[in-house]
Design a protein around this nucleic acid. Structure first.
Lengths: 259, 259
DNA sequence: TAAATAGTGTCTCTAAGACATTATGTG
DNA sequence: CACATAATGTCTTAGAGACACTATTTA
């Protein structure tokens, strides 16, 4: 299980099948009951231009032709859900090794007018500069980043999927380090604050925001027992119309390399 | 969407299909690609005997014959996921109108040795006294409540599903009123505290626990502006080996009647 | 020298956690 | 009268939020 949010402790798959199972399986034939189609849809988010953006594709085939949709595709018969999500993500954006989390499974009959389609929705957080190319799938025309606060008309129940994504993301901001998935390796505290602000949709107080961060400062006599979230770097970034700004690094980036 | 945790604000299904869509749909034939089976599994939890219990069924057919499993079943082609979950819940326990929440979707190839099965896991919180009869499905023998802390050997990846359920439940205890789903209409503060304790797996301090509750007390001069969580009732329950104890009621039980 | 942004500390209020005694009813 | 449980308040500490000025650079 590669999902970032799913940390199990004990109990995994039982060690072995039993003798009776092997006899049974040798003669098992899948029944011919009608089955739904299963897809994954990926809400790909990034922060750029001081806004929270989502990658959408414009449908060039019915249904909902001309409307925008979250990229997605069918789950292969030998492919895990996480793998399918990563494959779609790679196909659309060319990025791998980014934060990916299963969001929710949407399965109302009628959500796709063609046939029964159950979709397992994921969301991915990518750093804007990692995305090299945007490629449209076969049933899509344009691909573009849209502000999640100013969306076009969306196909299927994708509006609901985006609503829920934002809800989940806001919730996790408070008790996780998820924001770092949207930043490059080195960043300023102002950039970090911007990420929080565009996700929460509100301005934050600069001093209070910085108080909440636990920072290992440079030249601070090494009391290395404490566990810090951020590390001050010796480098600075030349300012634009003002002075140089300190750069920081997230200390524990393990969450980034998942799946 | 009937899920308790999914509150969407704006964006729903687009108002109407377009003319082109109707033309397309008139000629649409579902493809014959192989499809996975989709099931729902329901983790049914209750608190009794000062323990957190989960309803399990003993499999009397392969695979994993003789092991215990979370009840579940196939999703009907015209049935929403939530409906399928409620149907299974009703079949096993005879209860309806209880708290139900989608947990996670498990879809590793090989999690079911027969064929590809993707399962949408739900969890339900039921009050012990509501459950009248326990009925086993066709592929199950016994049905029983097990302590989630002392489980038998489990079939499929159901150990993982239970791990994740407990993780989610513990998380939600902190920021929601979910515990009330496990209690009858009227209860004592000690009973409420027991629910928290068996879910968290630790003893809590009685005075601190009660401080955290916002209670509308009897005979407290009506400052009705505030919004309370609990209401003190004029009734008391005769004590066992001790004095009578005050009864309380959860004020906003709307969450109970979902789906 | 005006405009833009970086960087920094204090005070107040609230929430969380540690902690012990008295009262009541039953056997 | 021994036992089991109900009910109740204070103190300390930590975190959240409100709030304003100085320094630096460029145009």
């Amino acid at each position: 299980m590669a999902d970032a949010d799913l940390k199990t402790t004990g109990n995994t798959q039982p060690s072995q099948l039993q003798a009776a199972d092997y006899e049974y399986l040798a003669t098992y034939q899948p029944s011919n009951y009608e089955r739904p189609s299963v897809t994954v849809d990926i809400v790909i988010l990034t922060v750029s231009d001081q806004d929270l953006k989502v990658l959408l594709v414009k449908r060039n085939v019915p249904p909902y032709q001309g409307l925008w949709a979250v990229p997605g595709g069918f789950v292969g018969m030998q492919e895990s859900l996480d793998k399918a999500a990563r494959r779609e993500l790679l196909e659309e954006t060319g990025v791998a090794n980014v934060y990916l989390e299963q969001l929710y499974t949407f399965g109302e009959p009628g959500r796709d007018p063609r046939t029964r389609v159950i979709t397992v929705a994921y969301f991915a957080l990518v750093e804007a500069s990692q995305v090299k190319t945007l490629r449209a799938g076969s049933d899509a025309g344009e691909v573009a980043w849209w502000s999640i606060y100013k969306l076009p008309e969306l196909a299927f129940d994708h509006g609901q999927i985006l609503d829920y994504t934002l809800q989940r993301l806001r919730g996790k901001l408070g008790y996780s380090n998820i924001a770092f998935q949207l930043l490059p390796e080195k960043f300023t505290l102002t950039e970090l604050q911007r990420v929080y602000e565009v996700i929460l949709g509100e301005k934050l107080d600069k001093r209070n925001f910085r108080k909440g961060l636990s920072i290992r400062e440079l030249n601070r006599s090494s009391e290395s027992s404490k566990t810090y979230m951020l590390e001050e770097l010796p480098e600075t970034r030349p300012g634009g119309n003002y002075g140089p700004t300190k750069l920081f690094r997230f200390i524990d980036r393990v969450e980034r390399i998942i799946g």
